[in-house]
Design a protein around this nucleic acid. Structure first.
Lengths: 221, 221, 221, 221
DNA sequence: GATGAATGAGACTTCATTCAT
DNA sequence: TATGAATGAAGTCTCATTCAT
């Protein structure tokens, strides 16, 4: 949410665009993007602790110093990445849920939005899930940030399930908290499974299976 | 499967029990158990890489050296733990599946066995899931060991689903691989979710929700 | 032969000398030299295994980390030192041999070159000899490097002895391999002896004794 | 010289031989011999520091504890071995020198005795040479012990050379200390070379070369 | 007579981080 | 803007040694 970079870069955008295309500002942006992309790829495949700042820098074609110049620490590098997850994955999902008219619609919207994310932005979403695993119980600020991200989705889904049960569209024999947890857990589990078995699984078919099973299981008959 | 410890201790069990277990053997066992218990707890809560051998030893009331005396490396400590997961969680689940008579029965048996494990042996099962995340893509021998563990369950479930579809008890509109992956993913996701939200969730209710949704979603109507 | 350092530093020498060598490059060089000098002194007096990286760093006025920054391992530190031995001791000796016109000349050149090395570069030469002892039979890459170094001198001397015997200048009653081994062994033995008894022995007198005995013993009467 | 073991074992020899052959005393001896043999082989091939007490014990078919039971430390293990070197190699050589009638004879006796040792007891002699290299400059008691061993031979040779020069049988243009050092150095260097190139060199031929060169080089014409 | 459990010091190495340039 | 030198803490592992049995 609060990337260190945003403010600084925005205040110079005007000047930069007025002047010319190949400016310091552009290089700055490019370096930042290269570093974030490198970090994302490495954190997702190797994990945060197993990835060294040097590896991130090398993959971005820069040196360690650059990471510390743009991000003040390895942790902020991850936090900046998590800001993007919020913008690009969480926020759209929340909006999609909000846009739905009835509970069933909202649940479908949630799943649809998530599978879209899985297709277009698999890595950012995966990052949040994997980092939640890696930092769980660490008492690190990063854990709190991640808890915040998931809490938003959790809250939104809780509202949907309550609504659904009130409207007698969803099964009422299951606890709300338990239903929500199930949906979140299944969603995250499937994300990870899909990422790992990318080559073996048929993406659309997997999404269909997932959606079908959950809807049939959650919707009251 | 091949714990370093088993051989040595077993070959002496006869002698030991004949003479009544005396201190050397007892101490050996006790130290090993303390170390394994400490490692299990720490690996599950902090992760493997984030846990130092010294922390494991300290939690067991011993020193680093003792860890290296019994297990020859940090990796073997984890591998020994995974041997136990296989014995205590995977094997019983496979047996439960095998004991089921029809596909529906077998699927229920799988879920039941897994939720039992979640109740009685949450940490060992969780260990396998979390380590699979931490070591995925590492090319480490540990990754291969984990792949082996999950492959067993995957294979068993694949057989169940094929049977179920052949008998027209399970939905036939979903791909087998996708259905199996869904079941595994959901199962693992729920395990993690339940562990993390232990205090907020009602265990039995959560298991009921999970089971209900999946059965209703998988079984053909 | 392939010092890690050479490439990097050489490619910048032009720029550096053009602009007058400034601090970064100078500091780099200075630190490397300090580390290599410290390592050389310690490896020669205490041996490789008995010398810790920390001792090397401390003697150079730096910390362990600096050693790993410049050389990536303790082994590379030694290998870099061996590169220098090759350049500064082995190569000149080979050249001296090559420059000799007849076998007797070449043998004298060999001994002269070696005693010069003993005077001016006792430590580098000694390093090779002592490390050959320490690593013999270790199957370590360092052993292979050392074998390579000595093989060059061995080959050169073999040619000289063959030539000498063919020209009937050298004794023909002794096997070539045995004569060469004797020369190498005597040379190395004397190097070590001289280093150890530096204070008691008269260097020039020792060299004279050595040379006299060998020549009188090898040359046919 | 002062093996810890001798006293103890001797006082029981009487009892042991009186009783029966397969006694504790015999086993004791056997274990000690196995340990010493293992240590000798390992120290010579891998070096003292690079050999762990555990490796020694394992090669002897025993455990670490046994080493500490018989020898109180790793150092004493080596010291005991050096006692044997003195008995089996140094002493006989000194006696051989003493038995010679004139200087030339004594020098030949020295070289003959040493080459005999090289044939029959290569490892013990080698041990002394290699350990002298490994411990030189260490200020360890072992270094002093080794200095003592070599000092004996040095002293004996010094007497021989002085005699030889006085009798005008040896070259008088070379310093005594330098000549002695040369002989010692050449002798040790050849020992090592021969051990390393055992397979390539013809032992007798090598000894002949060595002896021929040295005698021709030392004896006055 | 010998083992096996356990320790603790110290080794090599990695890595996040700082800072002068 | 970015690099490269350097640090220091921490991590995995080895090993000589002690001691109860």
């Amino acid at each position: 949410m609060s990337s260190i970079l945003k403010e600084r870069s925005l205040e110079r955008t005007a000047v930069a665009t007025a002047r010319a295309p190949h400016t310091k500002e552009q290089q700055r942006r490019a370096s930042i993007e290269k570093l974030l992309a490198a970090a994302l790829a490495l954190f997702v495949t190797r994990g945060y602790h197993a990835t060294s700042v040097e590896q991130v820098a090398a993959r971005a074609g820069l040196t360690k110093g650059a990471v510390y110049f743009y991000f003040r620490s390895k942790a902020r590098l991850l936090l900046t990445l998590l800001d993007r997850v919020e913008e690009q994955v969480i926020a759209p999902t929340l909006e999609a849920i909000a846009a739905g008219t009835d509970p069933r619609d909202k649940l479908v919207a949630f799943m649809h939005s998530q599978s879209l994310a899985g297709e277009k932005r698999a890595e950012p979403m995966l990052l949040a899930i994997l980092m939640a695993t890696e930092f769980h119980g660490s008492r690190d600020p990063i854990e709190r940030r991640l808890d915040g991200l998931f809490a938003q989705m959790h809250a939104a889904l809780t509202a949907v399930v309550e609504q659904g049960k009130a409207a007698r569209v969803f099964r009422r024999d299951l606890g709300t908290a338990e239903t929500v947890s199930f949906i979140m857990a299944m969603n995250q589990g499937c994300f990870v499974e899909w990422y790992r078995r990318r080559t073996e699984l048929d993406g659309p078919a997997f999404v269909r299976a997932m959606r079908g099973i959950v809807l049939d299981g959650v919707i009251a008959r």
